[in-house]
């Protein structure tokens, strides 16, 4: 996949980095592989998605749009949960150093609503750092909402460290509305446990502004997004621990690939409430009617070499009908049906 500037673009780019609009893909499959140069777009509305799918073969779908596209019987594909949204406490900040405060915040979070309503079922509530399909033991972790317990913990905290007067500063690291939405929801959940949280956004770089001028505001908690990019749970966990500087007990064997050891490592990290998983989000794409053999990897990697396209004439007519608001009539292959796993 190439961008319009000619640079290679990974299919597993972070969704919350500025999305390349107008990225073109030359994808023409003749026989076993034909690449045509076509734009990969992100639709902002159902009408946009239908219109764009009439012109291109593949669009990325935002979490709020994917269910509608599915409802409209357009072809979609949704990956396994790949991106972890979570909260990470900054150990250098005094307010975040109290384990009871961290636990109270964890117990106040309503992950179910985040996944099912805010992310419109395009995500799953996350209690572990690694997704179930990757680690196999994620189901062993569970964090249920317990506002009563959260309030009790809150009441037991010293007033000068719980944000009684000073709110807990939550910085939303990823860009985009979805992360901000999650941050605001966290703040609302925390407020129910009498923990004031103030959401602050990461300063956005503007043209002409030097990087030195962008100073991150001090924060107690970070909302982060971690995209799983490996099939190795150990490598994924190591990367996350290294990236977020999560401290581990010294007796843990960090080189072991044993799942029990991995589980123990993750459990010990989570037991300290330094990282609070929120949701695991899947990726969705809309597929044009001519796309055949769309079979990306479970972790979201696109295998464009396996894809082939039908002749465009018939698809053109079908897509035109979609754009005009008529019911879609393009062929629905069983393998490329909405929500189907490759």
């Amino acid at each position: 996949m190439l961008s319009s500037s000619g640079k290679p673009v990974s299919a597993k780019h972070n969704l919350f980095s500025p999305r390349p609009r107008g990225i073109t893909v030359l994808c023409q499959l003749l026989g076993f592989a034909l690449f045509l140069l076509a734009p990969v777009l992100q639709a902002e509305s159902l009408e946009d998605a239908a219109h764009e799918l009439a012109m291109v073969d593949l669009i990325e779908l935002a979490p709020d749009l994917a269910p509608r596209v599915k409802q409209a019987n357009l072809r979609t594909w949704t990956s396994e949960p790949l991106t972890l949204y979570g909260l990470r406490f900054d150990g250098t900040q005094r307010a975040a150093s109290d384990v009871h405060l961290r636990e109270a915040l964890a117990l106040s979070l309503d992950r179910g609503t985040m996944a099912s309503v805010l992310l419109q079922k395009q995500a799953e509530p996350a209690a572990a750092l690694l997704p179930q399909w990757l680690s196999g033991y994620a189901f062993l972790f569970s964090v249920d909402t317990n506002l009563q317990r959260a309030k009790e913990l809150r009441r037991g905290l010293p007033s000068n460290e719980t944000g009684g007067a000073e709110p807990l500063r939550l910085r939303v690291d990823p860009a985009g509305d979805l992360a901000k939405l999650l941050g605001e929801r966290v703040a609302l959940n925390a407020r129910q446990a009498a923990i004031p949280v103030r959401v602050i956004s990461r300063p956005v770089s503007r043209a002409g502004a030097s990087s030195a001028a962008l100073v991150d505001p001090p924060s107690d908690v970070h909302l982060f997004a971690w995209h799983c990019s490996s099939l190795s749970p150990r490598a994924e966990l190591d990367s996350m621990i290294a990236a977020y500087n999560l401290t581990e007990p010294s007796e843990v064997n960090v080189t072991s690939t044993d799942y029990q050891q991995l589980y123990a490592r993750e459990r010990r990290i989570l037991e300290e409430w330094r990282v609070l998983p929120l949701v695991m989000e899947a990726e969705s794409v809309g597929l044009g009617p001519t796309v055949r053999d769309w079979m990306p990897a479970r972790w979201g990697e696109w295998h464009l070499a396996d894809v082939w396209l039908d002749l465009p004439e018939s698809a053109q007519a079908d897509s035109s009908n979609l754009a005009n608001g008529t019911s879609p009539s393009f062929p629905q292959s069983q393998s490329a049906a909405a929500g189907a796993k490759p």
């Binding site: 309503v117 999650l182 941050g183 703040a187 609302l188």
Partner: peptide
């Protein structure tokens, strides 16, 4: 104006 409040 406040999508995060959905559900409340």
């Amino acid at each position: 104006q406040y999508p995060a409040r959905v559900g409340y």
